[in-house]
Each structure stands twice: as structure tokens, then as C-alpha cells.
Design a binder for these strands. Sequence first.
DNA 1: CGTACTTTTGAATCGCATCAAATCTGGTGG
DNA 2: CCACCAGATTTGATGCGATTCAAAAGTACG
Lengths: 213, 213
Amino acid sequence: MDRIRWQALIESQPELALIPAKLRAAADCLALEPGDTLFRLGEPLKGVFCVLDGEVLLIRTGRNGTQVVLQRARGGFFAEASVTTGRYHCDAVAAVPCRVLRFPSQDFRGALAADDAFRGKWIAHLAHEVLKLRAQCERLSIRSAAQRIVHYIESEGGSVTLTGSRKAWAAELGMTHEALYRTLRRLQVDGALEVDANRISIRQVQRRRPKAA
Amino acid sequence: MDRIRWQALIESQPELALIPAKLRAAADCLALEPGDTLFRLGEPLKGVFCVLDGEVLLIRTGRNGTQVVLQRARGGFFAEASVTTGRYHCDAVAAVPCRVLRFPSQDFRGALAADDAFRGKWIAHLAHEVLKLRAQCERLSIRSAAQRIVHYIESEGGSVTLTGSRKAWAAELGMTHEALYRTLRRLQVDGALEVDANRISIRQVQRRRPKAA
DNA sequence: CGTACTTTTGAATCGCATCAAATCTGGTGG
DNA sequence: CCACCAGATTTGATGCGATTCAAAAGTACG
């Protein structure tokens, strides 16, 4: 497993550049099939992960069985906060075939303790994560499905390419998949969005238009 | 301004214990009246803040004028992520008379760069912040107003004491104040919540009850 | 070809937002 | 002390939009 080609990986996942060499050596690569569970809420830490390919869903299940998608990890780290608390706070399930890198918690904590530069970089990474989460909170506070979709696409730079299913996207947006399909269609007809297979982009600035005329 | 009684402050705001002595010396204390703006989106950094008394609202305004309350800071730090990015990402407005501690960004960054122990503690703090934000995302994904309220109170340990107005609470919960008032009342009548002036606590585990019978 | 899934469309329902207005509250000034 | 005002709080009526339930069509895979 040590035969990981970091050069290529860092190009696809720039965040990996944060990881110091010593910690890289401890990493191993896992392949996941759709539905595979990487970890569950409450479990002691196996490690911190980074998505190479595919999409991992971080899910919390309410006591009434309702499932909430906290995050769709489509690249980059996840379970970062757990390395501090020592337990996972949600379930991680592969949505599609995935490859993920695992950094064992011991090694990760060791690297944080030993490597000052890494600690600084990790602070920047966590701060960035906080910003992303605030953006998601802002999005979830928007009542209109259309505006929520537009807000998401804007936060991704004006266009998105879907990796997983639209259903999973709908869950992340906090709406039902039916609502997503319908609203997407309406936005497309109205000319606000351009939908081309898996690529969806904003065509114009959303003008004040309470309803489809 | 150097005559700050840290012992007493740390008792009321345990997070302040993270701050090393050198950075403490650089802090100053600000008094805010309701409506006072501490900073606005896009402004260059004035510092990182910590609420001592009162309640500061972190607000983002959409292009259509919609206001979203990202956070009600009722103690503890805020604008932590901005120290890394160098700009504020929302507006900060006092909801009630407040006292806040300000740590100038220069000094804060200096402390992070110089003090390894502080860096480690700050990582833990940011990780905790990430968890809180994920909890809020989970809450905002809940569709039912009643469940959202209960989720909030549970995350606060089963009971909350309102500091600011209920209106502000409603905004943080992502619902209108009318919905909050009504739902609160209904939960009280149903016996799920105990409301005593500013103290609201959960009376029993929420049983499966789709509607008020 | 059949199974399991996503995607899509349809129809009915309901909860929350919205608009409106009355009441209550604390604070100010005459 | 009272009149007054600007807020928050509370209640009411209405409508829209998203959920929900249902089902058809499309797609991937063995």
C-alpha cells in the first residue's frame, strides 16, 4: 500500500499538499462500493479520510429514522473534526464506487503534535471548513427551492458538474428529490440555468421574478 | 484598558482560557448598544472577538435584501475563521447591550505563529466549531418547526434560557417569529415543553405524534 | 430479460410564510 | 405620573410552495 503516487494525487486533490511526508507514509488507500459504510456515529476513530474519486455521504439519522445528509464529500478531507474529539459524529457511506485515503488517527495526531508547520496549515484548513459550513447554513435558511439551488451553484463558482446522483444533491440541499427535479426544470425553462447532461450552470443573474410568468 | 480582570472573565467564558498571556495583554473591551454594528461583510479585519455579555448577531444579507442570521453569539468567540482569510464574511450587530473583548488581528496572528501550544488549542477550538456548525446544518435540514425547536433545545442540553429576543431565536432556527411563537405554544399545550418566562425545557421525550390530537 | 435504482411527472395535502392587526412591553419626555 | 412611541409578542386569516404519495419511464447491470 505504500506505493502511492503522491504527485498525481496532489494534482487531483490539492488539499493533500498539506500533509507532511511522514504522515503520507502512514496513509493507506481504500476502495468502496456504493452502500459501503466507512464508519458509524459513535465509533472510535479509525482515521481521517480524503476522497480521491467518487462521493461519500456523511449522514446523521434522527431518532424517528429521518436521514439528513450533512455533507457530500466529493474530494477533500472529511471527519476532520473527529480527530480532535476522538469519535465520529455521523455515518459515512459511499454513494458511488470510491477511492479514499485513510490517515490513521494516531499518526495524524502525532503529525499535528510534532509538526508546527502542519499545525498552521491545518488551522487554515479548518477555518476554511468553517466558512463552507456557514455558507451551507445560509443556504439551508433560504426558503425557496429555486434560490437554494442558485445559491449552491453560485457558491461553486457559477456551475457544477454532478458526480453522484441528483437525489443525493437534493438531500444536501435540504429538499426532496422531486422538488429538485421540478425546480431544476422550471429554472431551465425560464432560462435561468443551462443544463447539459451533468453540467449545470447559471445563465444570467436571477432577476426579480416571483413566479414563472 | 489593560485593567481587565481575567480571572473573573475566564470563569464566565471558559474559552478565554485558551488565550495566552501575551495576547491577553493586547485585548481591549468594547461596549455595544442594541443595533450597533461591530463589522460588516468584506471589511478588512479589526480583530477576533469574544462575547462577555449580551448577544451579537452574525448576519448575511442576500441580494434581494433577505437577512439570514448565521449565528447568535451569546458567549464565546466569533469571527474566528476570518483571522485566517483576512476579511469578514458577514455583518455583526449587537442584539442587546453587549460587552465584547477584541483581540487585534495582528496580535492574534502573531500569537498563533509564535505560540505552539496556542496553535494546538486553537485547532481544538476550530474543530469544536465545525461540530457546532454541522449540528446547525442538521437542524436546518429538519422540515418541521416543532422538531427544529426540540433539536435546538436538546443540543443545548435539554433546556435553554433566552438571552435576546425570541425573534432573533426564530431567525437562527430558520423560521419566522410567528411560526416560533405558535409552535412553542403548541408544544407547551401538548406538554412537550415547559416554558417558564425565559427558561424553556423539554418535559418528556417527543413521542410519535404527527399532530396535536 | 429482469431487477434495482434513478429520474420524471401527476395530484392532493398540509405546514409554514405572509399579510394584518391587536396587545403588551420598556423606555422617553412632557 | 401619564402620554407616547418603538419594539417585541401574540393571534387571526389566507395562500403558496414544498412535501407526500403514487406511478410511469428511463437506465445500469448481471
